[in-house]
Amino acid sequence: MNTPAYPVGTPGQPWNACDVAAWRARQVKTRTYADDVLRAIEPLRERFDVSEYGRLMYAEGEYPLLAIRSRGWNDQLPVLLVTGGVHGYETSGVEGALQFVREHGDDYAGHANLLVVPCVSPWAYERILRWNPEAIDPNRNFVVDSPAAESAALVELLAPLVDAVLVHIDLHETTDSDESEFRPALAARDGVDYEPGEIPDGFYLVDDSGNPQPAFQNAIIEAVAKVTHIAPADAQGEIIGSPVVAPGVIEYDVKKLGLCAGITNARYVTTTEVYPDSPRATPQQCNDAQVAAVSAAFDYALAHQA
């Protein structure tokens, strides 16, 4: 199969620095991190501790990276971790994380420490992109000495907590633009042929194949099914090329792949995937699905932490 003509690079050849610069020059800022995220966090300072855990310095400006923590943090309690906006274009991950803090952030006081990082990749958020300015996917680079500044900052933030985190839920989306833009761009960047895939219609989860927790995943699926529909398997019994191991659940080796969900040694980990382009789901439904997933994940983990 021939790679379709992508507007950057030479077909069959990986991008060089000039190609990355050409790709970056095509990207347009269409929304504002300061307005959408930083401003939304400000009222939360009355109830939570908000701290800057890093600052991205790009040609387009500076981006403070903020973490929201329980007030009265207790090192004797387990940590409940939410991350969103690892891919900037996955809007409900950011909005869902913030909505969860507003609506349920106080629910676990005295039982656990809450840590929420609502927007890991603010530059990409503003441009509705998957990659950072260097055309690097943060969600393959949550490793020591990461080439992605966004990933390196989060790894450093969580380093003291790797064994304290009980559950980590990472909020994502699968969108039609994965096939129309991001996977063709990935093939062009790497100098390989683009192989078309199938976008699943509905919500699904990615479990950790190195530490599968099927009952935990099922509890989340059951909760989200009350809010939005669950993605079915395709004709091959797969979702995005991976075998479906339970309704709405596939598995990745999250640590080996350098995924966000693999940063800590949490017993319970999952990655949500909302489908915002479905005619059967509204933007608010997508946010509500993320919130339902987080609540179900935390409730199950706390009930089964022994």
Rank of each mutant, 00 (worst) to 15 (best):
T3Y: 05
T3G: 11
A5C: 06
P7W: 06
P11I: 01
G12A: 02
N16T: 06
A17V: 05
C18I: 05
D19K: 00
V20Y: 01
A22H: 00
Q27N: 02
K29L: 07
V37Q: 03
V37P: 00
I41F: 04
I41K: 02
E42L: 11
E42N: 05
E52Q: 15
R55D: 05
E60P: 04
P64A: 09
L65I: 08
L65F: 10
L66T: 04
L66F: 06
W73S: 05
L80G: 02
T83M: 01
T83Q: 00
V86A: 07
G88F: 04
E90W: 02
E90L: 03
S92N: 09
A97T: 00
Q99A: 15
V101M: 04
E103C: 09
E103R: 15
Y108I: 10
L114S: 10
C119T: 11
E126W: 10
W131H: 13
E134H: 14
P138F: 12
N139T: 07
R140F: 13
V143D: 07
V143A: 11
P147R: 12
E150N: 12
L154P: 04
V155M: 06
L158R: 02
A159Q: 13
V162C: 13
D163V: 08
A164T: 09
A164E: 15
V167L: 11
I169M: 11
E173K: 04
T175K: 14
S177D: 14
L186D: 13
L186F: 12
A187R: 08
A188M: 01
R189I: 00
V192H: 01
E195P: 00
E195Y: 06
G197F: 02
E198D: 10
D201K: 03
L205N: 04
G210I: 04
N218E: 13
T228M: 14
T228G: 11
T228V: 15
H229V: 09
I230Y: 11
A231Y: 06
A231C: 08
A231F: 07
A235P: 01
Q236R: 14
Q236W: 10
E238A: 12
G241E: 00
Y252E: 12
D253H: 13
G258Y: 02
L259K: 15
C260Q: 03
N265S: 13
A266N: 03
R267E: 03
P276V: 09
D277W: 10
T282C: 08
P283H: 09
Q284S: 11
Q285W: 07
Q285M: 15
N287W: 10
D288V: 08
V294E: 04
S295Y: 07
A296G: 03
A301I: 00
L302N: 01
